[in-house]
């Protein structure tokens, strides 16, 4: 299509503005993460967009070193929350992917599942807040409170709808001729699934798993209610930093936020192609 130079100029201006608005909050946090304590709360004329004296003190601080004598060292460092986030999000992803993939295959190939798809949509629809009381009661009954594996179990269930719908659309897209050929050769259904279907679906499986991982990693509310001290995740830990008696730890929290934000942004850009499919429950492919 022909585009006038005026349109092109307008387009670039609009996009650059949008990019600027997109980047300002991110850059502010990145910048804050590298600011020394003196610059954290500099305001007015002293406000700095980029750290005058970039430092890694904030990162050292959250891992237990007191980088500056102005603030007391943390009694609990960021190491365990990071571990907790990693473990719970990973195991949660595994649970969601295992149950979701097999159910998606069952539905895609054998029409099995009955009301499962609808139930999963409803699961997605409900605010987690509205089921958290019984979950908290069950979790303490099962001794799962404040454990990363307890968190992983609920993550696995909450992200199951995404894993299921994503994998279903991938299975629906996969040509069946290859499986049918193997069946004619005398392979059992189970063997076909393990030996032929799954290896062929390696890339979609990886994308779906990354997508589910991002969702699990991003949780705040569930961890806020199900973990209290031992296995709090990064966002919960980050929020709790502000209530400490040392006042607002801007730089430290920004450093922590940066650590939390980098993996999903990076993974998200990696699986760009499948984002739309995942977010719309496979209703829409890019």
């Amino acid at each position: 299509m022909r585009r006038s130079p005026a349109f092109e100029a307008f387009r670039y201006a609009a996009i650059l503005l949008a990019c600027a608005i997109t980047l300002v909050p991110i850059l502010w946090m990145v910048s804050m993460a590298f600011k020394p304590i003196a610059e954290w709360q500099a305001t007015g004329a002293d406000l700095t967009w980029f750290p005058k004296e970039p430092t890694l003190d904030n990162f050292r601080y959250i891992f237990g070193e007191s980088g500056s004598n102005l603030i007391v060292a943390l009694d609990r460092t960021a190491a365990k929350p990071i571990l907790s986030s990693l473990l719970s999000a990973s195991l949660g992803t595994l649970i969601a992917m295992a149950a979701g993939t097999s159910a998606a295959y069952g539905l895609s190939r054998f029409g099995a599942g009955g009301n499962l798809p609808l139930a999963l949509i409803q699961l997605r629809l409900f605010p987690p807040m509205a089921v958290m009381i019984p979950v908290m009661m069950m979790w303490s009954f099962l001794n799962l409170m404040d454990t990363w594996w307890g968190l992983a179990l609920i993550y696995g269930i909450v992200t199951l709808p995404f894993a299921f719908w994503l994998m279903k659309t991938f299975f629906d897209d996969m040509p069946r001729e290859i499986e049918e050929a193997a069946l004619v050769e005398g392979c059992s259904r189970g063997r076909v699934f393990w030996r032929i279907t799954l290896p062929m679906m390696r890339a979609p499986l990886a994308s779906a798993a990354l997508f589910v991982f991002i969702l699990n990693w991003s949780d705040y509310l569930i961890a806020l209610l199900l973990t209290t001290r031992e296995w709090v995740t990064i966002p919960v830990y980050m929020a709790s930093l502000s209530s400490s008696m040392t006042g607002q730890l801007y730089g430290a929290k920004a450093a922590l936020g940066l650590i939390a934000a980098v993996p999903p942004v990076f993974l998200g850009i990696m699986i760009q192609r499948h984002l739309v499919r995942g977010l719309t429950f496979g209703a829409l492919k890019q």
């Binding site: 996009i15 949008a18 990019c19 997109t22 980047l23 909050p25 991110i26 946090m29 991002i214 990693w217 991003s218 705040y220 990064i234 966002p235 980050m238 929020a239 936020g257 939390a260 934000a261 999903p264 942004v265 993974l267 998200g268 850009i269 760009q272 984002l275």
Partner: peptide, 11 residues
Amino acid sequence: LIMPMMVVPAV
């Protein structure tokens, strides 16, 4: 432009 939606909401 698609970066914000991948930032952890709490962050």
